[in-house]
Nucleic acid binder design. Structure first.
Ligand SMILES: [Mg+2]
Length: 350
DNA sequence: GCGACAG
DNA sequence: ATCTTGTCGC
């Protein structure tokens, strides 16, 4: 049992209501579950107090650690389901948002590589793609995948699929806290095992600057690895006035030919990303800067990586991670045996 | 009750 | 993200 509602559609509602805004009439969007609670529920909810700090010990210390899915080391209690719009605490999200704001300073929005200036990307030989696939009834396990494709041939040169223990729930605006740790690990493994195959740019399944705080998973991964990164989203994240409204649908209809684009301009007037008609799909991609690639280069590169709607590096990472899970579920359960076996069951009877 | 909902 | 077969269309 969890404070703030029994899972499902209750929970904390729209977590992006946490953003600091003075707009009148927005206050009712603020999550209420903990707003009037007697006190903070955990370190994160105290506003990011470092763990182990000499703050007065909470009588609920050990327990509340279990209740903060965005806390490092969080382990979801068995059977606790986290669905849309639930699963994280305002305080945990607040500190995660602070971390995004802090790391955002490291983002480079311009081209930094020579090949990026070339008309046909001469000098570009390897493009990476990353993705995670999940198991339906399992909130803790996922398969993280990193692939590297040749360019311009788009043949798979490298594949790394690995089962991982997911610890953070999915909350829109905080995707990186769920996925990025495993993507960084995959990049580090590649660096270690096959340094020659390290990609010159990484296509990331999700947004970059097109984000509530201008720091989506593509920026996050880019800053943590210092690899050039591009955000590629399949759906529009409605931020800064952008909406999936009739105007937007009309703009989509205006994309007549493959390669056509229109800018995604926020209320501030800045271009946060670009909608791109890839191949012959009527459903566009949403491209944004991750790190060390300008938006124009990002769009051009994604377009040149598309055999189908989804650019091939991401598509291969997606296909292969899902296939990895499928195969694993069909294969017999293996338990690494170590030393003499002991009774595992019926211990409670002793 | 309504809005938002990257993956 | 995932649950899911066939079906209609190019
Ligand atoms: Mg994905």
């Amino acid at each position: 049992m969890r404070p703030g509602g029994g899972g499902g559609s209750g929970g904390h509602g729209n977590h992006e209501g946490l953003r600091a805004r003075g707009a009148p009439g927005r206050d009712r969007l603020r999550p209420r579950a903990w707003a009037g609670a007697a006190g903070p529920c955990c370190a994160a909810c105290r506003g990011g107090t470092p763990r182990g700090s000499p703050s007065p010990p909470s009588p609920r210390g050990p327990l509340v650690r279990l209740l903060c899915p965005l806390e490092p080391g969080f382990v979801r209690p068995v059977g606790l389901r986290v669905g849309r719009g639930s699963g994280a605490h305002p305080g945990a999200l607040r500190s995660s948002g602070s971390e995004q704001a802090r790391l955002k300073g490291g983002v480079v929005r311009e081209d930094t590589e020579e090949w990026q200036k070339e008309p046909s990307f001469a000098g570009l030989e390897r493009v990476g793609g990353v993705d995670l696939s999940y198991i339906k009834g399992d909130d803790s396990r996922a398969c993280a995948s990193l692939v590297v494709l040749s360019y311009p041939g788009l043949e798979v040169l490298y594949e790394d699929c690995r089962m991982v223990a997911v610890s953070a729930p999915y909350v829109a605006g905080f995707l990186a806290f769920r996925e990025v740790p495993f993507l960084v690990e995959a990049v580090q493994r590649l660096q270690q095992e096959e340094p020659r195959l390290k990609p010159q740019v990484l296509l990331v399944d999700g947004n970059g600057l097109l984000h509530h705080r201008g720091f989506g998973v593509a920026c996050h991964l880019g800053v943590l690895t210092d690899l050039p990164c591009i955000g590629v989203a399949k759906n529009l994240l409605q931020v800064d006035g952008l909406a999936r409204d009739e105007l937007h649908r009309e703009q989509i209809r205006s994309l007549q030919r493959e390669g056509d684009t229109f800018p995604l301009t926020g209320t501030s007037g800045s271009v946060l990303g670009m909608a791109l008609r890839s191949c012959n799909s009527s459903k566009p991609l949403y491209i944004s800067v991750g790190h060390r690639v300008c938006l124009e280069t990002a769009v051009r590169l994604v377009q040149s990586c598309c055999r189908y709607r989804i650019p091939e590096p991401i598509r291969q990472a997606d296909i292969r991670s899902r296939e990895y899970i499928r195969k694993q579920m069909c294969s017999p359960v293996k338990v690494p045996s170590s030393g003499p076996e002991r009774e595992e069951k019926a211990e409670v009877d002793d």
